[in-house]
Computed example of a mutant assay.
Amino acid sequence: MWSIVDDAERALWRFAPYEAVGPLRFGMSIGEVATAMDAEGFVSSFSYMDRPHGALAQDAGFHYKDAPLYMGEEAVTAYCRKSGALAAVAIDALRGPQVSLDGLRLIGRKPSELSEQLHEYADDRGMVDTVSPVNGDPRSEELGLLIRAQRAGDILLTRAFFVADFQDWAYTVHDCVPVHEWEIR
């Protein structure tokens, strides 16, 4: 089922590059992440990644407590380092919270529109590294952000991957994305 949560029904979160995504602050322990998400109305399932990626060894998926069974898929995925510290967050295009960067909505958008607006955002601030590689997914090393397209039936919507400081274990934001994330289409 390709049910998409209406923007009016999504939690509203703010993204502070390399600091936080909504109530999730990079560096929090997995227990602190679970507590913060519970306060936001989400329940979780913890697991160790079948395929650890770089410094990432554990993930936790969260869905809304009152989501119908058919919509119980993850709305938010938190990725933690081997140390247990939160290092990355992915927000689902169909059912995740709406996350904004200085008023620019990042989730559940038409990829082409958001890509253009993200490039304008970067240009207005003198950022030089916002790129769209061959696959067309815009990313910014300066923001610690990668925007991906996620399928919802016959349409594509934006899914965001946010990362903490990664310079001790990866070269680019793209390198931080675990295999599991690339498998979500």
Rank of each mutant, 00 (worst) to 15 (best):
L12G: 14
D6T: 10
L106A: 13
F166Q: 01
K110V: 04
H174L: 00
G153M: 00
V131L: 00
Q58R: 15
R14E: 07
F162A: 12
A34M: 12
F26S: 14
E142L: 02
A164E: 12
A36R: 12
I30T: 12
D102G: 06
Y64K: 15
I107E: 08
G136Y: 01
L157Y: 04
H119E: 06
M49A: 15
D137E: 02
V128A: 01
D123R: 05
L12R: 15
T130S: 05
I155W: 06
V128Y: 00
L143H: 03
G84A: 12
R148E: 03
D175Q: 07
S44I: 09
A85W: 04
A67F: 12
E142D: 09
R139L: 02
L86W: 06
A160G: 15
V33P: 11
W13H: 10
D168F: 07
A11M: 07
N135E: 11
W182E: 05
D175A: 07
A78K: 06
N135I: 02
Y48T: 15
K65F: 12
D66P: 15
V173A: 10
D124T: 02
Y64R: 15
H53D: 03
R148N: 06
R125H: 06
L106V: 08
C176I: 01
S115N: 08
V131S: 07
L118H: 04
L143R: 01
D59F: 08
F161S: 06
E74A: 13
H174I: 00
F161W: 05
P97A: 10
L156K: 14
P52E: 08
D102P: 08
L143Y: 02
M37N: 10
P68T: 13
L145W: 02
L145T: 05
A36D: 11
S115Q: 04
M37S: 09
D6I: 03
S45T: 11
E116S: 06
T158L: 00
V134F: 04
V163Q: 06
G41S: 06
A88D: 15
D102I: 00
D168W: 09
F166P: 04
I107P: 08
R139Q: 08
V134C: 05
F26D: 14
L12P: 14
T158Q: 02
V163A: 07
